[in-house]
Amino acid sequence: MVVHAVNIPSGLRIKSGIVTKGLFKSVSPTNQARHLVEVSNRSLLPYTISIHGECETPYVRYGDDARRDKTWDPAQFIIAPRPGHGGCTRRDASEKLTSLGKSENESIRTDLSYVPVTWSRGGSESVYVQVVTK
């Protein structure tokens, strides 16, 4: 349930996936499922990262009992360069997920875009996560 973006600059790594509290990796109103996007940067360049999540199928939604949204747009952020002595910097963003019914094949699309800071052009990629809802 974790998908890595592949067409990204060297040193940058972005993965999108679903995390749950329960033993079974499915989305339900009770298992506190979240859509998690993790970004790590092993290069010496800072990047501006934008994320747009969208539930493409009818039984999965962002939110909880109070609200149910089809899309998720966290604020864009800058991921700093790696420390000079080595290692990497990490940032992540997550949002609650809930289900509206049982389904075996629900899909969440994540549109990712990355632009090096001080440069006007970057790139983008969409990754898809398949989930089971209960």
Binding site: S10, G11, R42, S43, L44, R82, H85, G86, C88
Partner: peptide, 13 residues
């Protein structure tokens, strides 16, 4: 490995 990926894996310089 890419150059940044490799260079980031150093320890104690």
């Amino acid at each position: 490995r890419s150059a940044p990926d490799y260079a980031s894996r150093k320890r104690w310089g």
